[in-house]
Every structure is written in C-alpha cells, then in structure tokens.
C-alpha cells in the first residue's frame, strides 16, 4: 500500500476575513485501496476539505496554509492546466445531489463519454463501447445511454454520476455524501457498488458523510471533524468501539440504533465547548 493523498496543515479562510478559519490545520493520509471517511455535521468543514483537494474552493474562499500531496506531487502548486489534467482523470468526484449535478439537456451517454474524449481522446465506436461497459459496470442497461437524466430515478442518476467519476479509472475517488438523497435500499446498493469498485480498481476513496451508520459500512479509516478541526482520527474499529474524544462519542450516541436499545442523545454543545 502506498501513500496516495496526504494533507498537512490545510487551513481555509474567507478572503475577506483571514482570521476566520473554516477549516483549521487539517492533516491526514489516505492510502490507495483504502477508504477514509470524513465525518461531521453541516458546517464542520468536511466538504470544503474535499473541494480544497481538487482545487475547487468556492469563490471568496482561500487556502491560507497547508499542503495537498497527491501521489507525491504538490497539488496546491500546480497550475490550473495541470489540475485539469488530473481532475476527472486521476481524481474522480461524486457530488451529493444527483438531481442537480447532471446536465438535463444532454443524454447520459454523452455525459459519461465526455471525460473519456477529453482525457483519453476516445471517439466513435471505441467511445460507445467504453460507455456501454461503464453503464453495465454500475448496473444500468447499456441501451439507456440515450436516456436523459429526467428519465432516470434518483438511484440511477447517482449510478450515472459514479460511472462518470470512474470513467478514466481514477486512482482517487472523492465522494461527497453520495447517498444522502437516496432510499435506504438504494443506498445499500450504491455503497456495495462503491466498495466493489474500490477493490477491483484498487482506488483510494475519500468519503464524506454525517451518518456513522454509513461509516460503519464503508470506512477503513475515519477522520472526525468538528467546527473546522480534526478532533479524532484512526482506524474504523477503534473509532467505533472506543472513541476517545467526547464529540466522537456524542456523534455516535445521536445515531438511532435499529434495535431501539439505547436512548437517543442529542449533542450537548455547551458541554463540549
């Protein structure tokens, strides 16, 4: 196993208020063939961290400090042109909203094929065959390549997003809450699919979620974020069985269990501060 992605001291602030650290000194390492889950509530900075890896921070935000090493290369020093070579090819990304991330006026075959044309120069029959294979891989019949996003269900759209993100066989897949908008059974299928793809393609996966149930299903390593900072990180078994930080424990406690054995406990922020 080799080091795939390494973040050190990543700090993100608004341009206008450099003292307000939305992400503060975040460091962790992801190895290829493993899944790291970033867990936290809304506003914890988990999505910003993922966006910063890709150099896709929203307007008005800056990476104030820190490094992002991807395969031994400093991404933050790369030019836009170099980043465009990497994004979509060696780093794939799945966004949260399958309803809004697809272009409604282009058929899904075109949208999946786009990155293959751009990055690998595939065209014509070769491209068609590859797109068909990708669709089959995510469990959608190849004939649906001519369908438009509105003709697909939420789960199918998310599968299309996955097919797009793995089209160029990336070594790193970043998934930002890819299943929160989906039904439980569909969620289980998508998680299963991602786990299979990870093994088959020896991908590293950076998976963002707020649900510890999902973490238990998919993670090898866990990074817990709270108010922009990493409060705890470690292998999934350790985090689930003996969480050290009170926030991790609180976050675990507010997940309802299917057995109904433990009482629901909301997070007591006053006590944490």
């Amino acid at each position: 196993m080799s080091e795939l992605l390494h973040l050190s001291g990543l700090t993100i602030t608004p341009w206008q208020q450099p003292a307000r650290r939305l992400v503060n000194d975040v460091s962790f390492t992801l190895e290829s063939g493993r899944t790291t889950c970033i867990v936290g509530e809304s506003g914890s900075g988990k999505s910003l961290t993922a966006l910063a890896v890709m150099g896709l921070l929203p307007m008005g935000l800056q990476r104030q400090a820190g490094q992002v090493m991807f395969q031994g290369r400093e991404l933050t020093m790369s030019s836009q042109a170099e980043l465009q070579q990497i994004r979509g090819k060696r780093i794939g990304m799945i966004f949260q909203e399958p309803m809004t991330s697809l272009n409604p006026v282009l058929n899904i075959g075109f949208q999946i094929g786009e990155s293959l044309t751009v990055h690998l120069g595939l065209r014509g029959q070769e491209l068609k065959t590859r797109v068909a294979a990708l669709l089959e891989q995510v469990g959608i019949p190849a004939v649906r390549a001519n369908s438009y996003p509105d003709e697909l269900s939420g789960g199918q759209r998310q599968r299309v997003m996955i097919a797009m993100s793995i089209a160029c066989e990336p070594v790193l897949l970043i998934a930002d809450e890819p299943t929160t908008a989906l039904d439980v059974t569909v969620q289980a299928q998508i998680l299963q699919l991602l786990a299979e793809l990870k093994v088959r393609m020896n991908m590293g996966m950076l998976f963002i979620t707020h649900d510890f149930g999902v973490v238990a299903d998919i993670a090898d390593d866990v990074v817990v974020m709270f108010r922009g900072e990493v409060v705890e990180a470690g292998p999934v078994d350790q985090i689930l069985v003996c969480p050290q930080h009170p926030y991790t424990r609180a976050l675990l406690d507010c997940v309802p269990d299917a057995e109904g054995l433990k009482p629901l406990k909301p997070i007591d922020y006053a006590w944490l501060a």
């Binding site: 059974t185 289980a188 973490v215 238990a216 689930l240």
Partner: peptide, 17 residues
C-alpha cells in the same frame, strides 16, 4: 427483511456501541 438489511451499519453499529 430487505429494508432491515439495508440499514446502514446494522452489522457493526450493534456491536460497536
């Protein structure tokens, strides 16, 4: 049964917490 099996983390969460 299918729905119950799809609960995220139902194998591990039960033992972990």
């Amino acid at each position: 049964r299918n729905l119950l099996n799809s609960i995220p983390g139902h194998h591990r969460m039960a033992t972990a917490t």
